[in-house]
């Protein structure tokens, strides 16, 4: 029937609420029972679905709402391609920041973080430049609106990610939270950043190449 045993738990830290959001800071270096990365990953699935919805809308618009002839526009590829490269490289540099931290090379970590942030903000600058050089505005036609909505929403993600990197950079200085043994901010920002880069690759494929 029922077995009710009160065996002492092997992993007591998996039970208490203290292992929740602030768990790891109370158990420095303790990774068991810290589910924040899992939560973040779940959130990114949700965030990804928002993009999926936008992409689906874009593709449907393209399929059934052809623009009146004359108002179509071929997007320039040079700048966005450069931007793609910037983001991909920044994913790599972020990874380097993580490895540096794990090697206990705090200064290296900080350096790579700054480089990543710089790459991210150059991406945004490039995006701005593209916006200003485009011959259409937000409300010109369906394509224009969708283009700005999707790239804008992605740009918002990059901006947030960039700010997150700067915060992590601040926390990774001597005696800061990250150097103090809680790698969560760095890992979270890194996962988020890879996610944003991945979305961009899909976006680039759908919006620019297709």
């Amino acid at each position: 029937m029922t077995s009710l045993s009160s065996t002492p738990s092997q992993r007591p830290e998996a039970l208490g609420p203290q292992t929740g959001e602030h768990g790891a800071s109370e158990h420095p270096g303790e990774h068991h029972g810290d589910h924040r990365m899992f939560g973040l990953a779940t959130f990114l699935v949700a965030d990804g679905m928002t993009f999926a919805g936008f992409f689906a809308a874009y593709l449907t618009f393209r399929a059934v709402n052809p623009l009146p002839s004359g108002s179509t526009y071929e997007l320039e590829l040079l700048l966005p391609t450069l931007n793609t490269v910037l983001l991909l490289v920044s994913s790599f540099t972020f990874h380097r920041a993580g490895s540096a931290l794990r090697r206990n090379d705090g200064d290296g970590c900080q350096r790579w973080l700054l480089i990543t942030a710089a790459l991210g903000f150059s991406f945004l600058a490039g995006q701005m430049k593209e916006y200003f050089s485009l011959p259409f505005g937000l409300t010109d036609n369906l394509f224009a609106s969708t283009f700005y909505a999707i790239t804008g929403f992605h740009g918002l993600h990059v901006t947030l990610g960039g700010l997150m990197i700067l915060i992590v950079w601040w926390q990774s200085r001597q005696g800061g939270r990250v150097r103090g043994g809680d790698p969560f901010p760095l890992e979270a920002a890194e996962l988020y950043w890879h996610f944003v880069d991945g979305i961009w690759v899909v976006l680039y494929g759908i919006l620019y190449l297709l």
Partner: peptide, 12 residues
């Protein structure tokens, strides 16, 4: 006043 869902602005 974008026209994503507004047929009179070309939306669907």
């Amino acid at each position: 006043h974008t026209g994503f869902f507004n047929p009179s602005l070309g939306g669907n």
